[in-house]
Amino acid sequence: MQYPPDMPATARRHPDLRPTLRGLAWTSPFLLGTLLFLVVPAAMSFSFSLTDYSLIEPPLSVGLGNYREMLGDPLFWRVVRNTAFFALGSVLLGTPMAIALAALVETRARGSALVRAVIFFPTLVPIVAASIGWMWLYAGEHGLINRLLGRVGIHDAPDWLNDTRTAMPALIVMSLWFIGSPVVIYGAAMRDVPRTLFEAADLDGMGPLTRFRNVTLPMISPAVLFNVVVSVIWALQVFAVPAIMTKGGPNEATNVYALYVYRTAFDYGRMGYASALAWVQLLLTLVLALIVVLGSRRFVFYRN
């Protein structure tokens, strides 16, 4: 590259830093915010996780004591199991259901736009209102579900949210009410499939189901990967729904990780132990976020 003769000598030896500084300046709100509201709290959380801290007295160093306590804390393992069960259940049921609903809406049959709106709207309902509404559906004696079951002769239906066997499955079923975003994302991915592929499949004599399996599904697989990982991450953070609907009960049956962290910090006032719990959760989430980023980068390569 030719530099103009009047350029100072230093500029020739060092790459120009100005574009980088300008870029950093424009993105500084986000960088500062991430530092202040994410990195600093995470660092604080790590240092507190090595202490016993009740908010009232100054932190007392306990080394790795909190992490060791976690290993032997039966409630910790309980909430890990509950959270994994919830995440697995909601993702394993939600993913095929969202794909099927997206395929249904993308038939563009009459009224499908309205149906998509009806499926999507629940994701916007305030989570508190949604939770209260579902408590009413699940209510043992007067709830709609048990009333309908009574109509068809089932009178010994459980009190869904107050029964240790049914409470978590009930929350998983409720989580399916919020699959509007994946349905929309799958729909967009299906619309992006080149029509020529469908025409080729038609010429090959594929029926609609074979075509769906051999053309549509592979073509939307990047969207599936994206949605699955995002759904898993979000399911692992589930908080508001059990906090409002079951308060983690009955008998810890719906106590989940985020709720346990919240209680440890704010109800039991054990900031140190809560920080250790949060840090473990943070690491798991970072690993999963990394998978999403790598996965979505492969997506670009795949399409271009």
């Binding site: 986000f30 960088l31 509201f37 709290p41 507190f48 991450i233 910090a265 900031m271 980023v293």
Partner: peptide, 27 residues
Amino acid sequence: GRTAVFILVLATMMMPFTVIMAPQYLL
């Protein structure tokens, strides 16, 4: 560094509030 910052944006998108609520409260 533009790509690195963009990847950071995507990564924080995956960071739900419940993970950092206790430390944020302290902050």
